[in-house]
Write a protein that binds this DNA or RNA. Structure first.
Lengths: 205, 205
DNA sequence: CGCGAATGAGTGACGCTTCATTCAGGCGGG
DNA sequence: CCCGCCTGAATGAAGCGTCACTCATTCGCG
């Protein structure tokens, strides 16, 4: 295991918002070492605060992870809903969802690692993830698809729930592969390739 | 955290192959509590052996997880290759791959949890997983798809790598959702629904 | 009786969390 | 205008429970 010590602590004076600094640091440390292998002391060092300070802002190590997760989900869902209101064609909506999904993950690789890998690392977090954010996200996809079915664009015999999972799963796999790959390619353009195949598969003829 | 103590230890005499018993027990315990929250002592109790005995068969706790993973992957790839040799149509081959994928996971829920959740819980295991088994599995899908492209069945402009990831991702999401769902539905039939949409999306017209 | 397999209590390290102490800066009285 | 008081934020050393792993001892079979 590589030591975290190689990273210099952030200078004391440049950290105005401690809570924010701790969340950032934690995202970085968790992404590098994994949640269970990360020490609260590492997070504190990278954040430029003392160990004890972490506990002025978070009840426990676990709550730090939960906070990273909650903020990420609420931001992305809000952004997606806002963007979608400007579009009418369900096909364009789905395309925009896919683009946002991959754009957002590729914009912050550390956050992406936490979401794609660390959050999946225990049934407990997974269940939470599933119950809270993922469920709502899948619902967004499902409803958009159903809208397209009613408009006669998509095959009506398809189960919207299953379809939503297929699209999400395909995007999720793109993201996970991108994180694990040593190659340095662009993630976002894959959204269009996925949508191309997906729309072809579900379009009514 | 729920105690493991509620499970009675297996009777001493009924455990002929200790290594096998430990692997089974570990799959069960890891699936219930997560790898990092599981104690070697729990695994030993469920396996019906003493703590120390675990170390006669495995170098470390981590090696137990690795062994579960290696056996699972090698079995499934071997089975898939054998089955595929009896088929000629690439479309049928892909369908069979998808069916096997979901059938195998639904046949052993504990194993499925370890594969879908626990194995993803650290970039380290993920990277290993990716390098070893998953890469080969994706290659199998990709080559089968490319075969169909050469035969004029599938759209030649599609990137076979991306297509393989889409199919895998969709199946993977079905599996993960099934594990996390409290509902008790059949996983395997979803393979056909996924393939239906997938083939529709990639077929040359 | 001998020997390899199995045991499980012990150990040492580790890391989350606590809390007695320090520090910084706003405020009021002289 | 200055100074010392007070408050709450910040500190970081250490307590304390937890667990992976070890090894001296026992077991049981041939």
């Amino acid at each position: 295991m590589r030591s975290i010590r190689s990273l210099p602590p952030a200078p004391r004076s440049t950290v105005p918002d401690k809570r924010e600094a701790i969340l950032r640091a934690a995202t970085n440390v968790f992404a590098r070492n994994g949640y269970f292998n990360s020490k609260v002391a590492d997070v504190a060092r990278v954040a430029g605060v003392a160990d004890g300070t972490v506990y002025l802002y978070f009840k426990s190590k676990e709550e730090i992870l939960r906070s990273i997760f909650e903020r990420g989900v609420s931001e992305v869902v809000a952004e997606a809903r806002a963007e979608l209101s400007t579009l009418t064609d369900p096909r364009e909506k789905l395309r925009r969802i896919a683009q946002l999904h991959l754009e957002r993950l590729s914009a912050d690789r550390d956050l992406a690692v936490v979401f794609q890998v660390e959050l999946r690392g225990s049934t407990k977090f997974m269940a939470e993830f599933s119950a809270a954010g993922l469920a709502e996200y899948l619902r967004l996809i499902r409803e958009t698809f159903a809208e397209g079915q009613r408009a006669g664009l998509f095959r009506v015999e398809l189960n919207a729930k299953v379809v939503a999972k297929i699209l999400f799963g395909a995007l999720d796999e793109m993201a996970t592969n991108w994180i694990l790959s040593p190659r340095n390619y662009k993630l976002a353009p894959l959204a269009d390739q996925v949508l191309d195949i997906f729309l072809n598969g579900v379009t009514a003829r």
